[in-house]
């Protein structure tokens, strides 16, 4: 589904190489110490900056130079995932059409997604009138309507409490179950990886390694990961 072909990035002292493939529907965690380049890897895949070398392919198509909005993926960031001046329905609606001119069918699509994440009746609220967990649900409803084959999560639930985070991860798993999308999820917590991601990409020493089985990797960590896990 997604292939990184001999990709290399350099920013001053920092460098990162990646050369691997994510299969359709595969759920992959990205772990590594902070500053290793996890978010950089996701930003590169999302198209916020180009690699110095190599190519990014989606379904065999070279999209190394494609604009972020033209790539077959949906992404949630660490913060600012919702526009504060738009209502819940509008924030979700942006995932259907960027100009928000929705027809009847598209409107019901949005309504269904909002219902699916358990926010029925809150369509007209602004993000500031919602709790942190509810805001995350709005962002997930948008992922649902975007219906892209790949979802990138750059720790969007980091600010939530542990119980709420687990709730969100389970909701993510359900959403992915419905859309059949692949997942690439940055995480600080190995338990997150075990919970919803059968495969894991380890980012260490300037390399994003190819996905390996999460359980095996965490049970028997290589030295770089061992130092991080403690």
């Amino acid at each position: 589904m997604l292939t990184l072909e001999n990709v290399a990035i350099r920013q001053g002292d920092f460098s990162l190489r990646a050369d691997f493939t994510i299969q359709a529907g595969q759920r992959v965690a990205v772990i590594g110490r902070s500053g290793a380049g996890k978010s950089t890897l996701l930003s590169l895949i999302a198209g916020f900056f180009p690699p110095e070398e190599g190519s990014v392919l989606f379904d065999g198509q070279n999209m190394t130079k494609a604009a972020p909005g033209k790539r077959p993926l949906a992404m949630l960031f660490q913060d600012n995932n919702l526009f504060p001046h738009l209502s819940v329905a509008q924030n979700v609606g942006l995932g259907v059409r960027p100009d928000l001119r929705l027809n009847q069918v598209q409107k019901s699509l949005v309504a269904n997604a909002i219902e699916r994440v358990g926010l029925s009746g809150l369509e007209d609220r602004k993000p500031a009138q919602l709790s942190g967990g509810q805001q995350s649900r709005v962002a997930l409803a948008r992922i649902l309507v975007q219906d892209k084959p790949l979802v990138l999560l750059d720790e969007p639930f980091a600010a939530l409490g542990p119980a709420l985070k687990i709730e969100m991860l389970d909701l993510v798993a359900e959403v992915l179950e419905e859309t059949g999308a692949a997942l690439l999820m940055v995480s600080h917590d190995p338990q997150d990886a075990r919970r919803i991601a059968p495969m894991t990409v380890l980012v260490a020493d300037g390399v994003a390694y190819a996905p390996t089985e999460t359980g095996a990797l965490l049970d028997n960590p290589p030295p770089a990961l061992k130092a991080y896990l403690g």
Partner: peptide
């Protein structure tokens, strides 16, 4: 604050 989000949702230009 919202540049990346806007780009990833393809909300660009006039919109």
């Amino acid at each position: 604050n919202y540049g990346h989000l806007s780009h990833s949702l393809n909300v660009t230009g006039r919109h």
